[in-house]
Nucleic acid binder design. Sequence first.
DNA 1: TCAAAAGTGTTAAGTTTACACCCATGA
DNA 2: TCATGGGTGTAAACTTAACACTTTTGA
Lengths: 227, 227
Amino acid sequence: MPKCNYYHENPRFYVGIDCIIFGFKDGKLSLLLLKRNFEPSKGQWSLMGGFVQKDESTDHAAKRVLRELTGLVKVYMEQVGAFGEVERDPGERVISIAYYALINIDDYDRELVQSHNAYWADINELPTLIFDHREMVDKARNLMKQKASNKPIGFNLLPELFTLTQLQTLYEAIYGEAMDKRNFRKRVAEMEFIEKTDEIDKTGSRRGARLYRMNSDVYRKTRKFRI
Amino acid sequence: MPKCNYYHENPRFYVGIDCIIFGFKDGKLSLLLLKRNFEPSKGQWSLMGGFVQKDESTDHAAKRVLRELTGLVKVYMEQVGAFGEVERDPGERVISIAYYALINIDDYDRELVQSHNAYWADINELPTLIFDHREMVDKARNLMKQKASNKPIGFNLLPELFTLTQLQTLYEAIYGEAMDKRNFRKRVAEMEFIEKTDEIDKTGSRRGARLYRMNSDVYRKTRKFRI
DNA sequence: TCAAAAGTGTTAAGTTTACACCCATGA
DNA sequence: TCATGGGTGTAAACTTAACACTTTTGA
């Protein structure tokens, strides 16, 4: 394929990556935010970000940025979209691509997160964020909610073994509304890939609660999910 | 806001725009495609595209690109997402942002379209497209289908006055499946913003069919839509 | 007079919602 | 023994799906 001058008439742009990192902490949906200790906007809250590099796809860049903050690899991520207002970043023209990630809050590298000056914030009590990051968060949250209602992505936010109460609390946090316990469990019982294990969690109650596990192989056979 | 060297360590990229232009033609959902008479990939089919310029947002660039092809302004457009594989455009590294547009097929500037060597193609019989354009189309189609099911965006594909048979045929084309006429009309009757007019369309049948109109002001009051 | 599209209701099936009590355990 | 969270079923309300005939008119 010959290089062609047509391209070179056009301007080039910094392409940023911003990550909306969801976690499930103390029964609440939370985001991992950075208190910036660098300019621009030092001291303010922002999403974890970075720039796309020459030799990497945007999806790859998003995974790299997430890894730089959390140490995690193989994380569930989805693109939220491109944010391209001319003045969105007051420092320079940057076109940014937002991604959301769902991580298990027990797994990440705490030192790495600490060294970036990052903290978990309840999604319903977010501080003011720089630039258009709030818009990114809102769009990510809506997309995630939509997807979580018909694809089993929520399990990425839970430990491998979880109780049905944890699962219900998670979905209540995602939807922002209470659910009926019996109706919820009826629906779970219909999904064969949510498997009962032999184990009991004794930490949440005196009686103890049955632990369940998501079985991806079983899910692949039916691909039916609806909570 | 001081400029800061941090940005300048990073590479810059051409940022492309690609438009998935939906129309409703002869009872079928169609896309406006270009038979490229320029390199690279001359002679092959592609989406209408362009490049983001210095002084415009990506949304603005998408509207401009659409206007360059169709002459239309104030068109319904939604972003599909960013496509950022390293080798997606074999000519140069280009990160492209795809948008879909819904246009009324009676309105566009035919000469302009002709001069770009563009043609309507039935969405179910698309030719092979260059680069990752097929992927963009598939993602756009899914997003549009999803959105059309709970927001009244489909009316952008119809003339101002339309018959219920046209409306049903449109939704059958969007969903790719047949619908029951009586159930369909029952649902339409529940939506007050789909208003019966005094006019009759005599072109589609001997008997003639009642023409309807979408009233956006009435829609804004209820915002209930479900087909 | 007949072909072709427009228009019109009812019933059964399926889904969703509402709701309250007993169980097991450790402190 | 009691406070705490875990676990369980049924009936009513609502929504969705299936289904067939009459009307109008121009050729």
